[in-house]
Design a protein around this nucleic acid. Structure first.
Lengths: 144, 144
DNA sequence: ATGACTGCAAAGACTTTGCATCTTT
DNA sequence: AAAGATGCAAAGTCTTTGCAGTCAT
């Protein structure tokens, strides 16, 4: 059975405190100052464990990186295809018509992920020759 | 500007003819008999081109493999977390409330992906000790 | 001929894993 | 002590890319 671990706790807390829907690397870099000997493998291992336990959810893979969410109540997301930022959208009840359709298929539904894709406000502002916000990109992305 | 290519045509056709929401590898193996010298890199390159051109859509990454869809009209999917099968669900209008919410964020939406997750009928039947359908798994999965 | 497309293999990027060591109970 | 958890580095997967040769226009 699982035991207490300072680092595991920190990883879970980190995930729950941020709204960036971070990747494993993002968490790793965030915690590195506090745990200079933290290893990326540990972050991956614990995230996998959290997922199996239903403590965290996955937003899906964005730009090659899996993004996690400390909020497990199902809700849709907006994903910026430019910078990779992930934003929360208000929870939506799954349309009854869909639920019915899945039943016809004989499948059992355990959850869902829904991502609107597009371009976020900041990235739009840069499309018009405005590069003022350019540096924001690397800061906004939970990609790392 | 792009030119005609026998293999590219075959890749697109293959994607449009199947309902398996295949991965690059699946397409590769499917076309190998007809094009013994086909290379996996070519499949990836063309899929990437199709995506940029909007000729195909992406279902997302399932079990580590990106899955594609020849149907570009947005519609939700069901993904079996056991065998990786991807099924089509009938198109659903994006709830107005969500569209409004995204506008508040100032983001521009270009599309969406929605995947219900769960266990498909075949995999359910195997949960009860029935292994009759076991071999089906490898055939049903577009994973490869 | 020219520019595009492809095969091949190497390189990249993200994630998983084996093993010795250190922690928690 | 016993069972877990971690660091480290190697291995695994999937995908991208460089380059030389091939094909379409």
């Amino acid at each position: 059975m699982p035991r207490f671990s300072q680092k595991r706790e920190a990883i879970l807390d980190c995930l729950r405190e941020t709204k960036s829907h971070p990747s494993a690397e993002w968490i790793f870099h965030r915690l590195r100052p506090r745990f200079p000997d933290l290893s990326l493998g540990t972050v991956y291992r614990n995230l996998g464990q959290f997922k199996r336990q239903g403590l965290v959810s996955s937003v899906g893979v964005v730009g090659g990186l899996e993004r996690f969410d400390g909020e497990v109540t199902p809700h849709p997301h907006f994903v910026c295809d430019r910078c990779g930022e992930v934003l929360d959208l208000p929870p939506q009840p799954l349309p009854e018509s869909i639920r019915a359709e899945v039943e016809v298929l004989g499948a059992r539904v355990t959850g869902y992920t829904c991502c609107l894709h597009g371009v976020c406000q900041i990235c739009q502002s840069m499309e018009h020759g405005n590069i003022e916000n350019q540096k924001e990109i690397s800061n906004n992305s939970g990609g790392m």
